[in-house]
Amino acid sequence: MTLKATARAHPIQGLVKYHGMRDEELRLPYHDSISVCTAPSNTTTTVEFLPDAEEDTYIIDGEPVEGRGAERIEHVLDYVREFAGFDHAVRFESENSFPSNVGFGSSSSGFAALAMAASEAAGLGLDRPTISTIARRGSSSAARAVTGAYSDLSAGLNDEDCRSHRRDTGIGEDGFDPEKDLRIVTALVPAYKETEEAHREAEQSHMFDARLSHVHDQLAEMRDALQEGDFHRIFGTAEHDSLSLTAATMTGPSGWVYWKPETIAVFNAVRELRETGVPVYFSTDTGASVYVNTTTNYVDVVEEAVAETGVETEVWEVGGPAQVLEETESLF
């Protein structure tokens, strides 16, 4: 039996984002969260358990991983090893098809691919919601990247409750299909950000209690909008949630301000387009880069307007769940 597997996962765009962690070790969020996976952006990861090796090796995009990054990888792998009942060393290699640490969810796809590959290599035979609890130990958003497309991570104090599941979507009255017709124009603003610290400080913001008091309405609105296939409600809610999240982030002890002049320029371009009747909304996670959400019929005009602000753009669509790949796609 080979103890090796390769998996691929897509990163997430947060639609109703979590902020702050009730438990840092298990990465249990204070409230539910909803996201959509983005493709073709992806992370590919190969994991091999080596009974005769003495230590783990971690490589991402050709570079050794050390410090806090290595600790987070090890935390996930230690749980898999405990689950499998062995303590073999690991060789781990991962590659991203898109920029990392700029606000495009690389930790979500990274830990989703790790959890998927590691559980497969260990022969655990788990379903995706269960694998999402493994990925969550690296990043809460990674749980939703495991189940893919539009996914919902339930809050809870244990793995039975705090896991991700995929949400069904409906077709809107205008024919909009959230699974097929969404187009995401990405606006890359390459500024490094530190998400973990923002989560750690969240509850110290005087805006945090205000966010907790209204986020459940945001979640209810998002779930209903997805069921109805209502583009404007889905992505209007996501835009509003981005502003709410950032308000809490900026008013924490460190006063994190992730947005850059280019970020604001994209916001303004989106609002100008919307005033002319174009269906388009912006969204940000923790970072300066922007997701610009529109439909297949308007994506060309939207991308042109966003590019005119001077940022680098790509067009993404909805990505599926994490997948185990064939041996021929192994990274080593």
Rank of each mutant, 00 (worst) to 15 (best):
R128Q: 08
L153F: 11
G175R: 08
T147S: 08
G156I: 12
E179A: 13
P129T: 09
A145W: 00
S151P: 05
I171H: 12
S139A: 14
T147D: 05
A143F: 02
D152V: 11
E160I: 09
A149L: 04
E179K: 11
L182N: 12
I131Y: 10
R144N: 10
S139C: 10
L157N: 05
F176M: 13
Y150F: 15
S139G: 02
R137W: 07
R163Q: 06
N158G: 11
S151M: 07
R163A: 01
G175L: 09
R183Y: 00
D168S: 15
P178Y: 11
N158L: 10
G170Q: 12
T147P: 09
A142P: 02
R166Y: 08
S140R: 04
V146S: 00
R183H: 08
G172V: 01
S164N: 06
R136D: 04
E179P: 11
T169Y: 01
I134V: 15
L157D: 15
R128A: 01
I171K: 12
A142T: 06
D168F: 02
V146L: 00
K180G: 05
T169I: 04
S164F: 11
R167D: 12
V146A: 00
S151A: 10
T130D: 12
E173Y: 00
C162L: 13
A149G: 11
D159R: 05
S132N: 09
V146N: 01
A143P: 12
R144M: 13
D161I: 13
D174V: 15
H165I: 12
A142S: 14
S139H: 00
A142L: 00
A135I: 01
G138F: 09
S132E: 08
S164R: 01
G175N: 08
A143V: 02
G170T: 02
G156W: 07
S154N: 05
A145C: 11
R144H: 07
A155S: 15
S141Q: 01
V185H: 13
G148Q: 02
I131V: 14
S139F: 04
S141D: 13
S141I: 03
A143I: 02
R128K: 14
R137E: 08
D168A: 14
S151Y: 03
D168M: 05
S151I: 00
G170N: 02
T147V: 15
G172K: 08
S139P: 08
S164W: 06
P129Y: 09
I134G: 01
D159W: 04
D168P: 14
E179Y: 15
R137C: 02
S140L: 04
H165N: 12
D177L: 12
G148L: 13
R128G: 01
D152G: 00
V146W: 00
E160P: 01
D152R: 03
G156H: 05
G175W: 10
D159K: 15
A135K: 06
T130F: 07
R136M: 07
A155Y: 13
S164D: 05
A155M: 08
P178C: 11
D159S: 03
A135F: 10
A135S: 04
T147K: 05
G175P: 11
S139Q: 10
T133Y: 04
S139T: 15
R183P: 08
R144D: 06
D161A: 13
V185A: 15
I131M: 11
D152M: 01
A143Q: 02
A135N: 02
A143G: 03
I171W: 15
T147W: 09
G148C: 11
P129I: 13
D152T: 06
S141H: 01
R128S: 03
T147M: 11
D152E: 02
H165Q: 07
D181E: 14
